[in-house]
């Protein structure tokens, strides 16, 4: 099965983003089965790598004003985090 794709906005310096350790982040689903749910956002606990192939899914990175970075990273989602109880 083709890997899924997500994106996220990183507001800090990209070089400071920790790799290979679990962290909470907001992701947007870019490849849902029902296309109406594209860009649905969710909080997740996940592990990322700047290498495109290390984890199962692709993670596209955008900066604070929406600038898309050329190369995707990879991501493993551990779990979705519900913030609204």
């Amino acid at each position: 099965m083709a890997s899924k794709e997500y994106d996220t906005f990183i507001l800090s310096d990209l070089s400071g983003v920790p790799e290979d350790q679990e962290m909470e982040m907001i992701l947007r689903d870019l490849t849902p089965t029902d296309r109406r749910y594209k860009y649905r956002s969710f909080y997740a606990s996940a592990i990322v790598s700047k290498s495109e192939s290390k984890y199962p899914d692709l993670l596209w990175v955008r900066l604070g004003r929406g600038q898309l970075q050329e190369k995707p990273w990879s991501i493993k989602i551990i779990k979705e985090v519900n913030k609204f109880g």
Partner: peptide
């Protein structure tokens, strides 16, 4: 909300 056609208005926006 995703059953309504909220547009992605500009490329790079934070959401629909």
């Amino acid at each position: 909300l995703l059953k309504l056609p909220g547009p992605m208005v500009h490329d790079g926006d934070g959401g629909r």
